[in-house]
Design a protein around this nucleic acid. Structure first.
Lengths: 243, 243
DNA sequence: CGGTATCCCCCGCGATACTG
DNA sequence: CAGTATCGCGGGGGATACCG
């Protein structure tokens, strides 16, 4: 970028924080990703060279601390004190985005969604013996398999075993469910998200797929069959609280 | 920019907020600049085309509202509800920058500093009849004149009248004074900032030049004559509060 | 003054390959 | 797997001119 040439602390902070990819990288480290590869997988559209450059910048500015792995290979990246104080800013940005920004088609990404869903399954709700869900997104050829089993679940692009439940959502609806804008229960009821399988497992779906931590700030949306679009339920704005 | 293709609210917010110049534009509107020209003067390094583009984007995203001037010419730009909710984020960024970021040479800018100083003079401290200050920055040819008079003071690059006081600071020191990192009083005492004029007016200087609203979060710095550098006074970190 | 159009340069960044 | 080097393109944005 090359700076603003401005001594104002907002400008100096923006030089670092408001640069492409940087807020998301910090978010990922906040979320507990400490390895290069983990961050890169979570931000799968960033190129490794840019990620490396950003991490170096953040280290130079005292936001990130790089710890060489004692096992020789690789490092882990941790937030410094300064970096940890960015967390409330990240959170505030997320809350703001949730409250005020529309979800648009260009934000939809089935891969990323499945990745998020997988990492967000409450561990307490995981079944002791494995359950395999297959997700077939409408209008897409490929399927995703989610193999749930305590303590670790797994996301595959092939069938790891015979599936117990088949879910047929569309990307937008399931994304809005994840964002907390739509309720999975009603999406199942109206059939926008179709499911095949034992009703016992169907009922578990709402335990496995839960809204993100910004979900309580979402504006409730409702699907309108006539237009095929989601619209804001009312002018009422949710008051939320970060978990 | 072209987005992150990510439904996460932090990413969607970053698409807007964490783009070059945008945080500073919002800051300026928060600071009460509502005209294109005012914003452009405050951010004198942005090109008018980029400023126009950003304002259009912000309007499209519902952050800024553009009101056509009824007098025909021009418009004014105001924050919407969404835009106003960015203020705490701007403030948090400023506090963070103040707490954690070094002031570097590339941030220094005498023009911008004088502009800020002029807008920050507490109105209550302005003299009823005009007082003219001349600022000669060390190592610089050009001078700045500050003409103080209630209710409006003025910054000139020529002598608007005979000067009552001549101030010879260096850009770094005066910037740190403005940022709240250094005390003007001690800079005057040690002579880093030299002054010529009646001592009555010299004493008024500390009423006219006061730290920015982020000043209370600054890390106190002290000038070390041996190295010619400012260094952090101690590990003690100031606890501040935004005014 | 308030803003837009043009032009062009440069560098940011994405893709890919490559190395320990 | 953890990164770094290279390369080439696109477009972001700075400077400037220009128009209302």
């Amino acid at each position: 970028m090359s700076g603003y040439g401005d001594f104002c602390p907002v400008a100096r902070a923006s030089e670092i924080f408001a640069e492409r990819w940087t807020p998301l990288i910090v978010r990922e480290i906040v979320n507990g990703r400490h390895h290069f590869g983990e961050i890169h997988k979570a931000l799968h559209r960033i190129s490794p060279s840019v990620l490396g450059e950003r991490l170096r910048e953040l280290e130079a500015k005292g936001v990130v601390e790089r710890r060489k792995n004692m096992s020789g290979r690789g490092s882990t990246y941790h937030l410094t004190g300064a970096g940890r104080e960015l967390k409330p800013i990240i959170d505030a940005l997320g809350v703001w985005g949730q409250r005020w920004l529309e979800l648009r088609d260009e934000h939809l990404d089935a891969d990323a969604l499945m990745y998020q869903l997988r990492t967000h399954i409450p561990e307490a709700s995981l079944p002791p013996q494995h359950v395999v869900l297959r997700f077939d997104f409408r209008g897409s050829m490929r399927s995703y398999w989610l193999r749930l089993e305590r303590p670790h679940s797994e996301l595959c692009d092939y069938a790891p075993a015979l599936e117990d439940l088949v879910v047929r959502p569309d990307v937008e609806t399931l994304t809005r469910v994840y964002l907390g804008e739509a309720a999975l229960a009603s999406a199942l009821r109206t059939g926008i998200v179709a499911v095949e399988g034992p009703s016992r497992l169907m009922r578990m779906l709402t335990k496995w797929i839960v809204p993100s931590r910004f979900g309580s700030y979402a504006r409730p949306m409702r699907y309108h069959e006539s237009t095929g679009e989601f619209r804001q339920l009312s002018a009422v704005r949710a008051q939320g609280r970060l978990s």
